[in-house]
Amino acid sequence: MNKELKILAVVVFFSILTYVGVEPFAHSQMHKHVDDPTYAYADLKDSGKKGDAVKGKELVTGAGACTGCHSLKAESLPAPMDALTSASAYGVNPPDLSNSGALYDEKFLADLIKNPAHALGVEHKFKDGAMHPMVGFYGAGGDIDQEIADMVAYLKSIAPTAENLTPKDAFESACGRCHSMRYDKWSKIGTDPSFKSDKEMYEYKAKVATYDEALKAYMGAMPPDLSIIIRARSHHFLSTFIENPQSQLEGTSMPRVGLTKDGEVKVMEYLTQIGDSSKDKRESLGPWVILFFVIFSVIAYFWKQSMWKDLH
């Protein structure tokens, strides 16, 4: 018996050595090290101003302001243009602002309003006089930082609480205009309807394709479908990439998303729901199957002992 344990130790040792070499070690050499996300957005300054939501509402919904391009469903303000027209004008459909106060970091929102390309971390794309499609806020005549603080305060005041924001909403607001989610029938311009005829289907698909074309031209490459990205990338990769895309893929045209930690958790929850839908079943079945084989092995051990005891 003692000898068998020694042999087992040798087998286990070389198996683990191989595993550690080809898995954790090789992967640590293959991928560059990126620190866990902090969601601090330390490169962005905090103006320290306290915002007034009432004043902010006038600024956000006033003539020629945010709602000139963005919809605001929370206030029943529709988008001035549909997704397709927007995409042909800007390259991408501007997001509805209802959830933004709940999803995005305050400092990030403030900087985004003032200087979109900077906040989004895509200044490398807009050199040589090219303009980011979202126009920065020039101020309404007063203290610009105060005005921006008011706007952020307003956006936060209309945003749903964490309990009321579903993971799906979080995904649609933060990711869904550039990324499809075909395992949940999400096509960037909306959820795919069921079609009564081929004509309806082709018309809808043509719309999606038109939108995709504009988006591809704007981004330089088609942003990937995220249906099972949760299994294609590690959690660490996704969270650091979302916090700062440049940290993982230098030069990528994916903008910084600016999510708070809670916002990121919501998005990840949705990605898991769709991309790893068997997770709960897997985790609840696992212990039972393993328990079965533990009991199996115990009975088998005693059987073996009884069979072998007359032999020596």
């Binding site: 393993i290 533990v294 199996f296 072998w308």
Partner: peptide
């Protein structure tokens, strides 16, 4: 049954390891 009784025990232990990998 003698040789097999030992095989079956080794299989049991191996399957614990195997299903640990399958699930986790």
């Amino acid at each position: 049954p003698v040789f097999l009784s030992k095989d079956v025990f080794v299989m049991g232990v191996f399957l614990i390891f195997f299903f640990y990998l399958v699930f986790y």
